[in-house]
Design a protein around this nucleic acid. Sequence first.
DNA 1: TTGATAGGCAAGCCGTGACTTGCCTATGGT
DNA 2: ACCATAGGCAAGTCACGGCTTGCCTATCAA
Lengths: 97, 97
Amino acid sequence: MAEDVFKALADPTRRRILDELTERDGQTLFEICTRLVTKHGLGLSRQAISQHLAVLESAGLVRSRRQGRYKFHDLNTEPLERIANRWLRSDRPESTP
Amino acid sequence: MAEDVFKALADPTRRRILDELTERDGQTLFEICTRLVTKHGLGLSRQAISQHLAVLESAGLVRSRRQGRYKFHDLNTEPLERIANRWLRSDRPESTP
DNA sequence: TTGATAGGCAAGCCGTGACTTGCCTATGGT
DNA sequence: ACCATAGGCAAGTCACGGCTTGCCTATCAA
């Protein structure tokens, strides 16, 4: 549950993927692959990204919908909102200016 | 920097320590040790907790002040506020009901 | 139907991190 | 001065996680 969210966020590549999905939602595996390589210069295999996406999905941070031979990935921020309030429950920080 | 914050939060024992410090701030190593053992039933050595505190401190999540032979540990939520706004920047979540 | 595209499964390598053990330093009480 | 307390340092063990490699399945286009 929330346990997996922290482990999912522990890896920098997975955080990059979340960044990618915030910028453009509903990307496919190959799209994420190429964008990570070209924009961030990460030399990762397709399997590596696939496994990262599996971790993110089992943590509830990413939802996937299959459509034909494509599988689109959508960001889900709901688990993030919960962990944000774990140690900041008294008052939330003001949004960045 | 923020990189270390995620790695620091990845371990469940370290999150327990943060929980302990939110409940009572300014605890010493032995206090945290005994409370983790008694309240949460964790059978950890003193060194383990000490190393965890070092990780939390280098991540900026814990500040320590030495006083005589005691070393008190204080929680610092400022790094948490920043990572909370990384993927939630568009709109703030409503506080938990 | 065939070939190319999009993705999945499984085993294996390897580095990093968590924890222990043993010993050392320093402060404070009596 | 002496001993117990509070904490630090360093090396070593061990399991888990990230990544690769190789092969397999499924969908679309020609």
